[in-house]
């Protein structure tokens, strides 16, 4: 039986499923007759599969708020009190007017409303309001830790427990529930040997359900935020950011997929 010639381009198209259907049987017959080439083509297919698998997690990640056009549009609309269509026109206008200076939506104009950037704002505000309150910094003291943990677990609809930060020289004082635009947040308050306080702040995340740990600063209050599997975390205080990082790492390792 005479053999029909097959081109390299056809072999590549076979790998990608872009081969003309009429040529499929010809290529398959040719590969059956050339086992060395068949192995090479099989390796290309395995390569493509491995690449897709290694990178598919990225498309499942929530789009960061800064890149989410719909979200940006909503914020713009809410701020200006516009309906979505009007806000869209407004957004385009701003962008075009911005020209090379660009990206009016880049977020400088308005504080972050979602994601771990918003969580950072909430955590820093909570620190400012509660951490050094002379009368009642916490609603439940460390002595009632069990009740505190189960209260938070109920309100955040997932098991929550106070991290043990003794290794970082921090003792639990207690905790309180904090109201946010995104629902209830849990606040644990700690204190070190010299009386400096630190808050561990947790709440469920709708946006940026998973996010890497990053430093944040809001005036004198600094800290770290991250998100694991739908739960967002903030560790904030007035201690140097490096020492806060140590505490944040302990919290992360203890509360990973609680």
């Amino acid at each position: 039986m005479s053999e029909e010639p097959v081109t390299e381009a056809e072999l590549q198209a076979h790998v990608d499923g872009h081969l003309l259907p009429a040529r499929e049987p010809v290529v398959l017959a040719w590969l059956a007759a050339h086992p060395e080439e068949a192995r090479r083509i099989a390796a290309y297919r395995a390569q493509a599969d491995a690449l897709r698998q290694a990178l598919e997690g990225i498309v499942d990640e929530p789009v960061p708020a800064a890149l989410d056009l719909r979200l940006q549009l909503q914020h713009l609309g809410r701020r200006a009190g516009l309906r979505p269509a009007a806000a869209a026109a407004c957004a385009a206008g701003l962008l075009l007017a911005g020209g090379a200076g660009g990206w009016a939506l880049r977020g400088k104009a308005l504080p972050p409303q979602t994601g771990t950037a918003a969580l950072a704002r909430e955590a820093a505000s909570s620190y400012a309001v509660y951490a050094n309150d002379a009368t009642r910094p916490v609603e439940l003291a460390a002595a009632e830790r069990g009740a505190l943990d189960s209260w938070f677990s109920r309100r955040l609809a997932r098991p929550i427990r106070a991290p043990n930060l003794q290794a970082a020289g921090l003792t639990l004082i207690g905790g309180r529930l904090v109201a946010t635009e995104h629902g209830a947040a849990a606040l644990y308050l700690y204190q070190d040997q010299v009386g400096r306080r630190l808050v561990v702040y947790l709440r469920p995340m709708q946006v940026e359900r998973t996010d890497h740990m990053q430093p944040r600063r809001d005036g004198a209050i600094g800290g770290w935020t991250w998100a694991d599997d739908g739960l967002g975390f903030g560790v904030f205080g007035t201690a140097p950011v490096d020492s806060l990082h140590g505490a944040a790492n302990i919290v992360r390792s203890q509360l990973k997929s609680v």
């Binding site: 989410d68 056009l69 719909r70 549009l73 979505p84 269509a85 869209a88 026109a89 385009a92």
Partner: peptide, 15 residues
């Protein structure tokens, strides 16, 4: 509007 349409078309491609 043009930009609302643009957002509807571009958003799904961001990931």
């Amino acid at each position: 509007s043009v930009s609302a349409q643009m957002i509807a078309e571009v958003q799904p491609l961001i990931p």
